[in-house]
Structures are given as structure tokens and as C-alpha cells.
Amino acid sequence: MIHEFFIQDFTWFFIYLIIVLSFNLAFGFTGMVNLGHMVSVGIGAYTSALLTLNGVPWYIALLAAGIIACVIGTIIAAITVRLKGDYFQIVTLGLIFIAIAVSRNWISLTRGALGLPGVPDIIRSNFYYMLFTMVLSLMALWFVYWLTNSETGKIFQAIRDDETATAILGKNTYFYKVLSLAISTFLAGIAGGLMVHQINFVDPSIFDLEQFIIILFMLIVGGLASIKGSILGVFLLFALIDLLRFLVVRPELIGPVRQMALLLILLLVLIYRPKGIFGKVDI
């Protein structure tokens, strides 16, 4: 029997793999620097938590997590994708703070800062839940691989490299950018649902920048527009966190030291190797 510790770790690994793959689809493959990716994850988590807490079966709740995140993501994308220059990045960064404000203050829905405890498990056994997340993340992996090698995926990448040139070749770049974000936010919402059934709890801190830094680390260190890179990025982060768990003795320092280590590595990668380990493109 595998040790409980590794079961937890692997479950997280698979959940984060879905998040990073979907992040990569928009950011690495389509060149849309969506700094609010965790907002979609959080929306998924809240959706699935609220539905299952109200007795909706988990499979409907999980699907709804993806759909709600996708609908909100698509509406936002449809409005913001046309913004020029850095403004898309800026608006998506702003979404993080809007999500925090809404989740803290819409108390009748989210219970504010108290969060939603007691979210039921999908599967009692942690081991089988790990297998379940594994199956879903393998499906996501296959899907993103297939998509990025399809004609649609090539158009995403063309938009990333040169949007004007893609339009000049007869492609409706607006449509494809919104499509990329719609797919990306759907997957993120599903991952959010999986996350909330893993920890049985969600509160506004899911939107915090600290959470975003984690997936940014995974994506950038692993490498943009590389599926191999995303797998490696998620793996490296968990390896690093487990390593730090043993190295840092004083418990109150684990949080900040872990955060600083992540940020320092991320900083060095951004300065000296912005493509990341397996990355193919500069952003």
C-alpha cells in the first residue's frame, strides 16, 4: 500500500497538472497572458462546493464547475480580448482582486471570509480519489496535446507569434482567442472542483496572489508552450515544497520561506532563461 503522504501529493499533482495545462493553453500556446487564471479555478471550486453542499450529485456539480467557469471566462474574454497592448494582462490581474472582493462580501452565497467547510468527498478512499484525478488529468493531457497539434491549435500558436499576420491569412483571430480562453477556463473550473473535493473546504484565499504564483512557477519554470514542461513544472514545485518541509525547522517560517524560494527561482528563470526548461517560446 502506498503511503498516505504520497497519495495526497499525487492527487495534488494531478489536479495542478490540469490547472497548468489549461493555463499553458491560453498563455503559452495562444500568447494570452491571463493573470486571472486562478479566478476560474476558484469559480469552479465555489460552484462545485455550493452545489454538492446543497445535495446535487458530484458529477453534475463537477461538470457545472467547468461550465460556470467557462461561461464567466468566455463573457469576460469576449469583452477584454480586443484590448490593446498590456491592457488584457492588466484587466485579468484586476479580476483577481474583484474575485477576492466578491467572495468576501457576497456573504449570503459564499459565507465571506469564513469560507465553505464540509464539502463532501467525491470518493471516500483517498487512493481511489487519486486514481480519479489521475484519469481526469490524463484526459486533459491527451486533449491539450491533441488540440495543440490540430489546425485550431496551430492557429492559436500563430496568433501568439503574430496576430496581425494570422488575421491577414484569413483567420478570425478574435474568435480563436475567445475559444482558447473558453477551453482554458473550462478545464480550470473542473480542476477547481477537484480541488475543493480534495480539501473539503474553500474560502476567498483561493484567489490570493500566492496561489497564482504557484501556477506561474509551474508554467514558467517548466516552459511555455510545452506539455512536457508543464508536467515537469508541476513535479518540480512539489519536489521543492517537500524538500523545504524537511529543511525548514521553524514551522512559522515554512510559509514565507517556501514562498521566497519559489519566487527567487522564478525570478532567476525570468531573468536568465525566460523560456523555462522545456519551453519553446518567449513571451
Binding site: Q89, I213, I220, Q259, M260
Partner: peptide
């Protein structure tokens, strides 16, 4: 993009440093 992300990373780095 890289400049923007780097500056956000620095912002977070200093807040963890202060926390530590």
C-alpha cells in the same frame, strides 16, 4: 509581458521577505 510578470513576482517576494 516578462517585465510585468517579473515586477509582480518581486512584489510578492518582498512581501514574503517582510513576513519572514
Amino acid at each position: 509581458n516578462v517585465m510585468l510578470i517579473t515586477s509582480v513576482v518581486l512584489l510578492m517576494f518582498f512581501s514574503s521577505l517582510i513576513l519572514a
